[in-house]
Amino acid sequence: MNVFTGRVLAAGLPTWVGPLLTVLGVLIVVLTIAAGLIWYERRLLSLIQDRYGPNRVGPAGLLQVLADTFKILFKEDWIPPFADKRVFVVAPAIVMATALLSFIVVPVADGIVIADLNVGLLFVLAMSSLAVYSVVLAGWSSRSKYSLVGGLRAAAQMVSYEVFMGLSLVGVVLIAGSFSLVQIVESQRGLWNIGPQFIGFVVFVVAGLAETRRLPFDLVEAESELVAGYHTEYSGMKFGMFLVGEYIAVTLISALIATLFFGGWLGPWLPGLVWFLFKTGIFITFFIIVRGTFPRPRYDQLMELGWKVMLPLSLVNLLVTGAIVVARHS
């Protein structure tokens, strides 16, 4: 039972109200942030590229998201006759579901977490490894060459970077002595993990970029060569789900960076929730600035960076962290 549930119980409400409110709160906030990111990213990218971006609908263009949502909802939802229908329909749902499910184990403030699993971090990694299915199945079921190439690239890219993502986090787990994200945050009371785990942080950020298929690692949808990659054949809200799924994934990776390396909700003066949202926001902004500044590498360069730089780096990090932890314990 967490602090939040305790407060709800004290108010004389049934036991299931507290967890339900947490679930709904996290769900609504995450979906709002993900939708708002569409506007935020477009405005920020415009700022980088010295233009205005969407500024017509509502104050500062804020209602652009609403207008886009209505447009995309009323668009014709077309399934190509040559597609594998059932798989084609399921694929966009997977990307949304896996990204949202990962938020189950992310603690947003002291004592406010949907489920503090003792395999929390593994749960996140499991969900991120399932997210690959969405892209690959979308590419395969479309029965289009551009989609298929996008899907194949996604499979190789995401499976490779998953390896480094997992390895880069072992150092954090070693320091905390637990897979639980709450315990990992608690272990950073004295010193944030960004200090002792700087290499792990760098590897995790690069792997996170690759896992969310964001530029510079968006070769799965490289529009200059593959039209739109794995979602070439998608239209209407199914396309919208890929889009929103990507923003949820960006929010998730940012929240994870804040939780694992920057002390999560820990911070002076302000309440924990504010600190957590603030740190997450900084990394979301970082992700967008990276998108606006880096060119896209060639596919073989992407793979080389993974296996020849990231893998040795994360292994060395693991070895050194392990040695230090063992030395401190004995």
Partner: peptide, 11 residues
Amino acid sequence: YAGAIMMLFVF
């Protein structure tokens, strides 16, 4: 199994 090995099969 579900994440890595089956992914390789599909690949």
